[in-house]
C-alpha cells in the first residue's frame, strides 16, 4: 500500500506527467484550450491572450527566480527590450515573418541578459537584486532617450503580425499564435529543467557554495539562467508589442516587474504549472476587481469606483504577495499539491 507520492524508479522519474490525475488535468486543459475561442466573448479572449503573454514572461522570471534563486527586479526592462526590438525590426522590415522577428527579439534580449548577469559574478542575494533594479532604471532611461529608434516617451507603433504576407490581426488571430508559443515555451522549459543545466540551477538556488564545491560552474550557469530568463521575457515583450500594436515606456513601469514577481509567487516559485496558474490569476485579477468595484458602487453610491479601481488593484496585488508568502510559500501549486496528494491517497489521509 502506498503511503505517499514517491518516484521509486527511473521510468517514473523520466515521465513528464507521472500521475493519472496530472494527465487528466492536462487533457482537460488541452480540450479547454481548443474550445475556448469558440465559446468565449472577445473580452475574455483578450484577457486570455494577455495571460498567455504573461505566462511566457513569467516562465522566464521563474527560471531565474524560482529555479536559480536570482531575484530580478528588472524583468520589465527585459520585456521592454523585447518589445522595442520587435517595434524596430518589424518597423524597418515589415515583410519579415513574425516568428523570425520574435526570435530576433528573444536573442537581442538574451544578449542584454548577459549584461545583467555580469554583477551576478560577484554579487548574490539582496545585492544582486539591487543591481537588477539599477539595470532596470538604466535600460528605461536609454529607451526614453533613444528617441529616433524608440520614439521616446511618445512610444512606437508595431505593424500587424505578418506571416509570409498573411496579416494576422485581432484577438482571434492572435490566440493560436500565443497558444503555440506558450506550449513551446512550457515544453522547452520543462525539458531544460530535467537536463544538467536545470539541475545545476537548482543546486545554485539551494546553496551556491555547495554547488560550487560539487563542480557547478557558478558563472556559467548563472549567466545561462539570466540569458534564458531574458530570452523568455524578450519573447513575451515581443508578443505584447505585436498584440497591443503600440508600446511606450508606460507599458514597462516598475509595477510591471512587481506584477511578474507576484505571478511567480502566487503561482509557486520553482514550478511551471504554478507559473501558468499565477500568470492567469494576476492577469484576471484586475477584471475581478473591476466587477467588485462596480458591485460596491451599486451598494454604496458614495464609493467612486473609477478612481478607486487602480488602488484596489495594487492593494490586492500586494495582499496576494504578502499573504501567499506568509501562509502558502509554495503558492497555488502548493494548494494543488495538497489536493493532488489527497486524491492520490484517498481514502487514506497519508
Amino acid at each position: 500500500m502506498r503511503s505517499g507520492y514517491f518516484k521509486v524508479d527511473y521510468r517514473r522519474d523520466r515521465e513528464l506527467f507521472p500521475l493519472f490525475i496530472e494527465r487528466l488535468v492536462l487533457a482537460v486543459a488541452v480540450v479547454a484550450a481548443i474550445i475556448l475561442p469558440l465559446i468565449t466573448d472577445r473580452y475574455l479572449l483578450h484577457l486570455t491572450n494577455l495571460t498567455m503573454i504573461a505566462i511566457v514572461g513569467a516562465i522566464g522570471l521563474n527560471l531565474l527566480m524560482g529555479y536559480t534563486g536570482q531575484v530580478s527586479l528588472g524583468h520589465a526592462a527585459f520585456l521592454a527590450i523585447g518589445g522595442y526590438t520587435t517595434a524596430i525590426v518589424a518597423g524597418y522590415l515589415p515583410q519579415l515573418p513574425f516568428p523570425v522577428v520574435i526570435l530576433i527579439a528573444g536573442a537581442v534580449t538574451s544578449v542584454t541578459g548577459l549584461l545583467a548577469a555580469v554583477p551576478a559574478f560577484r554579487l548574490k542575494g539582496l545585492y544582486l537584486a539591487l543591481s537588477t533594479l539599477a539595470f532596470y532604471y538604466i535600460v528605461m532611461f536609454i529607451i526614453l532617450k533613444a528617441e529616433p529608434l524608440t520614439g521616446g516617451a511618445m512610444g512606437r507603433h508595431i505593424p500587424e503580425l505578418n506571416f509570409f504576407g498573411l496579416e494576422l490581426d485581432g484577438e482571434y488571430a492572435f490566440y493560436p499564435v500565443g497558444l503555440a508559443i506558450v506550449v513551446l515555451g512550457l515544453v522547452l522549459a520543462k525539458n531544460l529543467l530535467r537536463t544538467k543545466t536545470g539541475r545545476a540551477w537548482k543546486a545554485i538556488r539551494d546553496w551556491d557554495l555547495a554547488a560550487e564545491a560539487m563542480g557547478v560552474n557558478l558563472r556559467m550557469y548563472k549567466t545561462l539562467s539570466f540569458t534564458t530568463g531574458a530570452f523568455y521575457a524578450g519573447v513575451a515583450g515581443s508578443l505584447y508589442a505585436y498584440y497591443i500594436g503600440f508600446i511606450s515606456p508606460q507599458d514597462f513601469t516598475f509595477t510591471v516587474s512587481v506584477n511578474y514577481i507576484a505571478m511567480v509567487i502566487v503561482g509557486g516559485m520553482g514550478t511551471l504549472a504554478g507559473t501558468v496558474a499565477g500568470a492567469a490569476f494576476i492577469t484576471m485579477l484586475p477584471n475581478w476587481i473591476n466587477q467588485l468595484a462596480g458591485y460596491l458602487q451599486s451598494l454604496w453610491p458614495a464609493f467612486q469606483a473609477s478612481t478607486a479601481v487602480p488602488y484596489l488593484e495594487r492593494l490586492f496585488f500586494g495582499l496576494a504577495i504578502v499573504l501567499f508568502l506568509i501562509f502558502e510559500p509554495e503558492g497555488l501549486f502548493g494548494l494543488w499539491k495538497s489536493l493532488r496528494n489527497y486524491l492520490v491517497m484517498w481514502p487514506f489521509r497519508y
Binding site: V258, A262, E313, R314, L315, F317, G318, L319, I321, L325
Partner: peptide, 8 residues
C-alpha cells in the same frame, strides 16, 4: 508586497 499595500 507591503509597499504596494501601503501605497494603495
Amino acid at each position: 508586497g507591503l509597499s504596494e499595500i501601503i501605497k494603495a
